[in-house]
Design a protein around this nucleic acid. Structure first.
Length: 529
RNA sequence: GGGUCUAUGGCGCAGCCAGGUAGCGCACCGGACUUUUAAUCCGGUUGUCGAGGGUCCGAAUCCCUCUAGACCCGCCA
């Protein structure tokens, strides 16, 4: 392909936005405002994948604006969803009794938000705020209470038989041939899912239901036996996911929504419902793979392996998150915190490309890299490159200096000539890298094997270090002690590294010991004598 | 049953979505420096890009078939 075909800034985001725009034009729809949507789960702790959905949708919004259209991101909290499982680590809050209730009707176990659901959504919104994503927030609970979907619900329920058959045909699920795709919240016990909708009274716009036992996961949830009628415009209840998106797309006039491959089937059904039942051409989509943890398991909100934006930001910059999410969308990704150092370095590299410090021959690749850099900066790139300090180097230094870390690491960086002046930016980096080194440098208190000779040598070294007289050449002293005690210097150095750093290698140990402080080292070593 | 992704030097991966010199990290080898370990610096080796076919002047990249592995859906969201 030739370069004149490069769209926008050359990234997948631009390509997607351009497809979207072409499609809207072909459909003949009004393109004054192109809304994009991201759904936020509110049932569990939001992980980086949920954040990704919104961050990428925001990227599409930016690309649309770059192509000259107005756009807006709706962040929609699914807080009418019922609580199905108690998330890992939240066993002590007595949430059992709230199982199957909409998460917006469950009190916040931490007491800081109006509900459990709002608590969870807030964590995600906080993540979005911290990486600089702007959005318009909407909640399912308000949407339904205000009856914003009532026309769509009505249309769907009137066509429920047709929809049920189509669901069976498209995805092989037969349940909606029997039941209405609508779950009222039981007026008596506040539970969702237990209330089974049996009949739709179209004239009154009411759904008849009976609250009875149901299976959620492998557990049975008791229904209360209540029989009632729910008004689709007023009473709480929600559409099943298989049809809910479609209703929302039409009501909010959504033109784009990304989705993870786990909900592919739902999207397929919803697209059909939007097109055929609601007569609203479904939004443009892009499918993305889930983030997997390093073992290849799906990151699940209810398992313990959650990577949240908050945790990530302890170690990496907001830009490292944006880079992760914008660099590509396809492909299964095994993700872990150990990807942070690489992303931090990659950002610096992109910045160098952007400012012409690194030459890239291929024009298309240059454009793409520059474009990616701009998206990572939310299309508002800095005028000047920042000071680049190698993240891994700072992690190494942070490993060594635990006391007065910021000051001492900064001094080292100045000594090494890596930076010219102490800068707040670098200070922040030291903080991040420091957190990383604290958390992930496995301080394997390795059982250091010491024979008698090594012990004796170690003891002598401790004495020498504790001594008041200045050891002008610690390196040499160590070597001499080893030799005169029949310990291979090689092994002795290794032992010292193992004790001090927990590794079998390290920086030149003489100067290193003075850096840490002789007394400090003597104290550490003496524990092994 | 349905679907998606992945396969690239010894290991871990990028590049693929918009075709144009196959790259990075680790490991490995050599050299420099250090009285000696390590670190550091410089240089170097390593590939039928899973298999087969197709399109093209040109394919790791696009299309089809196949193989192997992983994951998701078939509760709910």
């Amino acid at each position: 392909m030739t370069e004149q075909e490069i769209i926008g800034k050359g990234t997948w985001i631009d390509k997607l936005a351009s497809e979207l725009l072409e499609r809207e034009k072909a459909l003949g729809r009004n393109i004054d405002l192109l809304r994009v949507e991201s759904g936020l789960g509110a049932s569990g702790i939001p992980h980086i994948g949920s954040l990704g959905d919104a961050v990428r949708a925001y990227g599409v919004k930016l690309a649309l604006e770059n192509l000259g259209c107005k756009s807006e991101l709706i962040a929609y909290s699914d807080d009418l969803d019922g609580l199905r499982k108690i998330p890992e680590g939240m066993q002590e809050f007595g949430l059992e009794e709230h199982i199957a209730k909409p998460v917006s009707l469950i009190p916040d176990p931490y007491g800081c938000h109006d509900s459990y659901g709002m608590h969870m959504s807030s964590i995600l919104l906080d993540g979005l705020d911290r990486v600089g994503i702007k959005y318009e927030f909407r909640r399912a609970v308000d949407t339904y209470k205000q009856g914003l979907l009532k026309e769509q619900i009505h249309a769907i329920l009137q066509n429920s038989a047709k929809i049920g058959d189509k669901i069976s045909e498209l995805v092989g699920q037969e349940k909606y041939q029997k039941y209405l795709p609508y779950f009222p919240v039981c007026a008596n016990c506040n539970r969702l899912y237990t209330a089974e909708a049996t009949e739709y009274i179209a004239d009154e716009r009411k759904v008849k239901y009976t609250c009875h036992d149901t299976e959620i996961g492998s557990k049975t949830v008791k229904g209360c036996g209540h029989t009632g009628e729910a008004d689709i415009g007023k009473d709480l209840g929600k559409l099943a996911w298989k049809v809910e998106f479609a209703a929302r797309w039409k009501a909010f006039d959504i033109r784009f929504e990304a989705y993870g491959k786990d909900i592919m089937d739902s999207v397929k059904v919803n697209d059909w419902v939007a097109d055929e039942i609601l007569e609203f051409p479904h939004p443009h989509h892009v499918k993305y793979e889930m983030f997997l943890d390093k073992g290849g398991k799906k990151i699940s909100k209810s398992l313990g392996n959650v990577i949240t934006a908050q945790k990530w930001l302890e170690f990496g910059s907001p830009k490292s998150i944006l880079l992760l999410l914008y660099k590509r969308i396809t492909g299964a990704r095994e993700l872990g915190f150990d990807d942070i150092p690489g992303l931090m370095a990659e950002y610096n590299e992109l910045e160098d490309i952007y400012f012409g410090r690194i030459k890239v021959d291929n024009q298309a690749k240059l454009t793409k890299s520059k474009g990616l850099y701009e998206y990572v900066n939310l299309l508002n790139p800095p005028k000047q490159p920042s000071t680049h300090v190698n993240y891994r180097l700072v992690v190494e230094l942070a490993k060594i200096f635990k006391e007065n870390r910021s000051e001492r690491v900064m001094k080292k960086l100045l000594d090494y000539g890596v930076i010219k002046n102490p800068e707040p930016e670098v200070e922040k980096l030291i903080e991040l890298a420091g957190n990383y080194s604290n958390e992930f440098d496995e301080q394997e208190k390795t059982h250091v094997d010491l024979d008698d000779a090594a012990k004796k040598a170690l003891k002598l070294l401790v004495e020498a270090l504790e001594g008041d007289e200045e050891l002008e050449d610690i390196q040499n002293t160590i070597y001499q002690i080893a030799k005169s005690n029949d310990v291979e210097p090689k092994d002795f150095f290794k032992i010292l590294y193992q004790i001090i750093l927990g590794t079998s290698r390290g920086p030149k140990i003489g100067p290193f010991i003075s850096d840490i402080g002789r007394k400090q080292v003597a104290k550490t070593l003496s524990e092994y004598v």
